[in-house]
């Protein structure tokens, strides 16, 4: 079925340069442009403005108001409505207060954790941490996020740095497959920069004359790159880690492309309808996107999958640290610990 693959790849290639996605997408409510989980006074003010001024979503409330207007008891309906609106805003303010305390608590916890787990470029320490665990995930995935350009670790450079740090940790932990996802595909588009970034990071961790080999795979273009640009010669040697770079394009749209291809083949009688099975779709998507990861790390304040390929998160374990906003080793190792302690029983 390599024909299916080729057609899908061709379809994907056509419009990969659309990079305005980030401006168009609606983020999850827990993960806006500015951290919404942090209840500043400005945020609370904004919330109250919407809560009080915007009408209700509920049909019932609207119907009741209209009814009151018709029957002439307009004032009664309005007063009742206003009363509930005031109670709602009080409720939201109360929630914001509780949330504030929670936020501060979480931040202190993260600070302490970051002090406790700090490998400072030493692979031995990471390996020691990992050796205590009974099992490791075979494939690890991580969702990276672009921060605003002005911030510390913001912009594309920040994403590249975070990605290469994760690669270094994974190599030290002994994980062979790493999937890096970023919604807009910055990593993919700057794959050469990313490779040299990874090389630099690894040479900080290891002996610079003998840096572990790595392979970077971009499933969207069906390409594999070895090591840094210009030093691809060592291909024959076994790589220490394989890195897949994914973006939003590999999610819903790839499934749609696959559907189109199959529909076309069916319509031209090159394939029977009964040939379309779960198994075929699964194997095609594995070829086109990759395998399902075992553990997904998210380094934002609260879980937001950002369009990670839906077919590939079936049994994936998620880990994120509440109210954290940085790519830190503490989250990485705690995620591995969580994975080691969890038990998966498919259906049983």
């Amino acid at each position: 079925m390599s024909k299916i693959q080729d057609t899908v790849l061709k379809r994907q290639d056509e419009n990969w340069r659309e990079d305005e996605r980030d401006h168009r997408r609606v983020r999850a409510i827990t993960n806006g442009v500015k951290n919404p989980g942090r209840p500043s006074v400005g945020n609370v003010k904004k919330v109250l403005e919407t809560a009080v001024l915007v009408g209700s979503d509920s049909e019932e409330v609207r119907r009741k108001l209209a009814q009151h207007r018709e029957t002439g008891s307009w004032a009664q309906g309005r007063v009742e409505y206003a009363f509930y609106k005031i109670l709602l805003s009080m409720l939201l303010v109360a929630y914001a207060c509780v949330r504030y305390a929670q936020y501060e608590y979480n931040r202190v916890k993260i600070l302490v954790l970051n002090l406790a787990y700090n490998p400072s470029n030493t692979p031995q320490l990471i390996r020691q941490d990992v050796l205590k665990l009974p099992k490791l995930p075979k494939r690890l995935a991580a969702i990276l996020e672009t921060k605003p350009d002005g911030d510390v670790g913001g912009g594309v450079g920040g994403v590249l740095n975070d990605g290469s740090e994760l690669v270094a940790w994974s190599v030290s932990a002994g994980i062979k497959h790493l999937i890096l996802y970023d919604h807009d595909g910055h990593l993919k588009r700057n794959v050469d920069d990313f490779r040299s970034n990874v090389f630099h990071k690894l040479s900080k961790f290891y002996d610079p004359s003998n840096v572990p080999k790595f392979a970077v795979r971009v499933p969207q273009w069906n390409k594999v790159y070895f090591n840094t640009p210009g030093t691809e010669t060592g291909e024959a040697r076994k790589v220490a880690i394989e890195i897949s770079l994914l973006s939003n394009r590999d999610g819903r749209e790839t499934i749609i492309d696959l559907t189109k291809t199959m529909a076309e083949l069916c319509a031209h009688n090159e394939m029977k309808l009964s040939d379309i099975t779960m198994k075929l779709i699964d194997s095609e998507l594995t070829q086109l996107v990759g395998h399902e990861p075992d553990l997904l790390l998210y380094f934002g304040p609260s879980l937001d999958l950002q369009g990670f390929p839906p077919w590939h998160i079936r049994l994936t374990e998620f880990y994120w640290e509440q109210d954290n906003d940085q790519v830190t080793y503490a989250v990485f190792i705690r995620g591995l610990k969580k994975y080691a302690s969890c038990k998966v029983n498919v259906g049983k």
Partner: peptide, 19 residues
């Protein structure tokens, strides 16, 4: 207490749903 989706609502949740 499990933090996985167990093959449920993958398509519905993976863009910007709250879990």
């Amino acid at each position: 207490g499990h933090t996985r989706l167990s093959d449920y609502m993958l398509w519905q949740v993976h863009e910007n749903g709250v879990v």
